[in-house]
């Protein structure tokens, strides 16, 4: 039993170096497999979808507006007679791109801030963390709305806002791991042989943060999709005629009673993607941090 515990702890420390057990664990968690499948499916569609879409997503065909799903229009048509199937497919690129870039930005800057703040400590850490707390003490959607309201809604601005808003959460997680790692003796051994801060941060500490960062990134990705879609829905995100799913749902509300499919397909796409990312994120946590660190 003592041995078993040890094995688990050790596997948790260096999951990337030994991928085999990770995959074995993956098979033990069917939900995770489903999650990865869904996410890869959407990535596939985002990459190759636009070339497969039967229509141009902006192609209007007013005589055919609000057609129910048929052989010609698999998901039906919207209020302008545009093909919903094509729009949902093209829209996947939008969601993944905007939420993905936002997440990448948050993870990158959050990681840097967390690393430096945690490693340096002292007043620098205190100031940075208090600032992060301030950002965290405003509801993200509200802050996003207020900022976009003043910056003006555009795809780039949405990315920037999403990235900015989630920096504090990533920074916090990274910082807490750094605080734990920097007192480990392998870091002290590095100081004793005169390694510079740069080497210690990026060669000694960073590799050990990667599992936490991967789990955190997947969670942030889920939150980003949430935020991007909500902003689109409120009309503060990506602007028409872009086939943003949130935006499509927002516009479709008017036609809800006449043509439920106008709303159903983009909403379903969001739901499916979110479920996929959720399963994936939960699975990543199980695989990479089997010790179960409670950083929610």
């Amino acid at each position: 039993m003592e041995d078993g515990k040890n094995m688990i702890r050790q596997a948790g420390v260096s999951p990337f170096s030994k991928l085999q057990p990770v995959f074995r664990r993956l098979l033990r968690y069917p939900m995770t497999l489903i999650g990865f499948a869904i996410v890869f499916f959407f990535i596939f569609i985002a990459v190759f979808g636009p070339t497969m879409a039967p229509y141009q997503y902006t192609e209007q065909n007013l005589p055919n507006k609000l057609q129910p799903p048929s052989e010609e229009y698999v998901f039906g048509t919207d209020q302008f007679g545009r093909d919903i199937f094509s729009r949902v497919i093209v829209g996947s690129r939008d969601v993944l791109m905007v939420a993905g870039s936002g997440t990448a930005m948050a993870v990158f800057f959050g990681m840097l801030l967390g690393l430096i703040s945690g490693y340096r400590g002292g007043w620098f850490d205190e100031v940075i963390m208090r600032l992060m707390d301030v950002i965290l003490s405003i509801p993200p959607l509200l802050l996003a709305m207020v900022i976009l309201f003043s910056l003006g809604p555009s795809r780039l601005n949405v990315i920037i806002v999403v990235g900015f808003l989630y920096i504090p959460m990533v920074a916090r997680v990274v910082r807490s791991v750094v605080l734990d790692l920097k007192t480990r003796q392998f870091v002290e051994a590095a100081r004793l042989r005169g390694e510079g801060s740069f080497y210690i941060l990026f060669r000694e500490i960073l590799p050990n943060i990667m599992p936490h960062l991967a789990v955190e990134a997947s969670m942030r990705f889920s939150y980003s999709i949430f935020l991007v879609a909500s902003l689109g829905f409120l009309g503060l995100g990506v602007q028409p005629p872009s086939p943003d799913w949130g935006l499509m749902v927002g516009e479709a509300r008017t036609w809800f009673y006449q043509a439920r499919w106008v709303l159903f397909f983009p909403a379903g796409a969001i739901a499916l993607l979110v479920v996929g990312v959720g399963f994936m994120s939960d699975g990543l946590r199980r695989m990479l941090l089997p010790g179960g660190v409670s950083n929610e």
């Binding site: 050790q10 420390v13 990337f16 170096s17 480990r184 003796q185 392998f186 000694e204 590799p207 050990n208």
Partner: peptide, 8 residues
Amino acid sequence: DASLNPQH
């Protein structure tokens, strides 16, 4: 356990 970097 803590004195060697688990990744090196």
